[in-house]
Amino acid sequence: MRDKVKALPWQELLLPLVAVVLALLVGSVFILYVGENPLKAYGILFTESLGSMRNIATTLQRATPLMFTGLAVAFAFRAGLFNIGAEGQLYIGAFCAVWVGISFNLPRIIHLPLAIFAAMVGGALWASIAGYLKAKLGVHEVINTIMLNFIALFLTDWLVTGPFHGGSWVPETVRISSSAAFTRIYLPTRLTTAVYVAGIAAAAVYIILWKTKRGYELRAVGLNPDAAEYGGINVARNTVIAMAISGALAGLAGAEQILGLHNRFIVRFSSDLGFMGIAVALLGKNHPVGVLLAAVLFGALQAGSAAMDRSTAVPRELITIIQALIIFFVAAEFLIRRMLRLKEDA
């Protein structure tokens, strides 16, 4: 049995690709405006992100947290939930990871997995609050996840500047014990084994959604909750479970940031990784493979932007504009279909 959604047919891939090309085209207008040659700027962007093994490693390192948050948003979306709260779940997960990382002294083989697990549990519980509010009280998840983002942000602000403050003049915790840290795999870049975890997570998402009974129920709830209910599926329970799994994935992003990159909790370290996850999921068509590819693209844009900023007059903020344009064109799927004269499937 192969569902329509399971495979990523060429059309599904084509639309995001066209969106990226269009975004680059529109972006080149901005580059021309600052008096640079778009080909040159994009050339640098490309070589600096994918032109060498080292650059590819940097790209992957930038992509890793986006893989997790992208998977988180995509998973919830498959169950019909718009999880805007990946950012907050990431912070809670990160805090759980840092807590395990600094509070225990354990052999690496236990300590790292435990810290990762703690981050997943933290993210899952935090997201379950939103799932529960939605399932039992009918509070829309967009509203309550946004609110929970603020709570998570200020809660971790307080924890890190208060009870868990590291004592320096910076609002951050002390370093985690090295036994809880991900191993760097391509020095001198900061790429760590966390990228493998992301690969495993993507595979797990795929298996859960398409190979298990639970996934069948989750997707049914996402596609048609009334039919799911009629088919004996407990919509409320599946809503909470979907949010929990989504939150666990977002928590993994927090774990990656703490245990792989910063090795401590710095107040407000995330710089919108959770929100970027929405864009990644959208571009990746909510499919785990698509999410990985989209995350790599965004990682590449970020990795190459610094060099482009250095060697041309194009500011790195252009990358933010291009990312926004990509999302704009993905959302304007109808427009692209018309341009390509693709026949509507539905």
Partner: peptide, 15 residues
């Protein structure tokens, strides 16, 4: 109520 329209015939037959 009766169908998940985006599911395959097989997946609807086991709902």
């Amino acid at each position: 109520r009766g169908l998940v329209l985006d599911y395959s015939v097989a997946d609807n037959l086991i709902l």
